[in-house]
């Protein structure tokens, strides 16, 4: 282990009861880069992504073998506090899921649960994360309006702002634009582009063009296996595995 990777999976196997969902996966992700996970539905992308912030812990019958490292530290060790881990690894879900509260309260939720209640700090954090998520100009006069009154695309950017407010170093995004219209989608893509200077980003997507546009690296999954992981350009122009080739040329999946 000469190089320092941000995230690493070592001999990872995952099971839902008797179902073998992830098979022997070894993968290392660079810091401050965007990595896209692609692959047909049901191949295990979400399962794998959710390992990095331990969201699978709540699923009954889920079992993990192998190691998952963040900054070279095993995040499944007993001594690890899951809430501390999630401060470092933020997540954005497929469907926008704002809390039924005001825009402001959504953004500062992560800080409030840490016990931060100083108005000045919260307001500052809200403004800076809404700006990072390119939502500030649209909502700055309505911070105390219900988040549920926003459009789907705005809600998703709010969810990104909410994740950024706790200043994670990794951002996991599970098909963040699949429920959105083309304009909102391109806004999210631009946003990912600007965020990668500061965050290590992993994005699951079904949209090959999107993977091509936003990511530096791409990992292709098939039936629970990692088939290929390479620089995005290389993977799309000269895939090493015929299965990758078949998938990106649309011959199956």
């Amino acid at each position: 282990m000469s190089k320092n990777y941000k995230l690493e999976a070592k001999d990872v196997n995952a099971f839902y009861g008797g179902f073998h969902a992830l098979k022997n996966i070894n993968l290392a992700l660079e810091e401050k880069a965007v990595t896209a996970f692609i692959g047909p539905s049901g191949c295990g992308k979400s399962t794998f992504l959710r390992l990095f912030n331990r969201m699978n812990d709540y699923i009954e019958g889920f079992r993990l073998e192998g190691k998952v490292l963040l900054d070279n530290k095993d995040i499944y060790q007993k001594s690890v506090q899951v809430d501390e881990l999630r401060k470092a690894v933020g997540m954005v879900f497929q469907k926008p899921n704002p809390f039924p509260k005001s825009i402001f309260e959504n953004v500062v939720y992560g800080l409030r649960i840490q016990g931060i209640s100083k108005k000045g700090i919260l307001e500052e954090a809200a403004e800076s994360s809404l700006k990072q998520a390119a939502l500030w100009n649209e909502v700055k006069d309505n911070l105390h309006k219900s988040a549920l009154a926003l459009s789907g695309g705005q809600q998703q950017r709010l969810c990104i702002a909410r994740a950024l407010a706790i200043e994670p170093s990794v951002l996991l995004m599970d098909e963040p634009a699949s429920a959105l219209d083309p304009i909102s989608t391109s806004k999210i893509e631009e946003l990912i582009y600007t965020l990668k200077d500061r965050y290590s980003i992993v994005i699951v997507t079904h949209n090959m063009q999107q993977a091509g546009r936003v990511s530096d690296y791409t990992a292709f999954f098939l039936s629970g296996e990692l088939v290929e992981h390479a620089k995005t350009k290389a993977l799309f122009t000269s895939p090493q595995d015929t299965r990758t080739q078949n998938y990106i040329t649309g011959r199956f999946g």
């Binding site: 912030n53 709540y58 809430d83 501390e84 999630r86 879900f93 704002p98 809390f99 939720y109 649960i113």
Partner: peptide, 8 residues
């Protein structure tokens, strides 16, 4: 999930 993911 949203709440857990924010460290709650």
């Amino acid at each position: 999930e949203a709440s857990f993911a924010l460290g709650a």
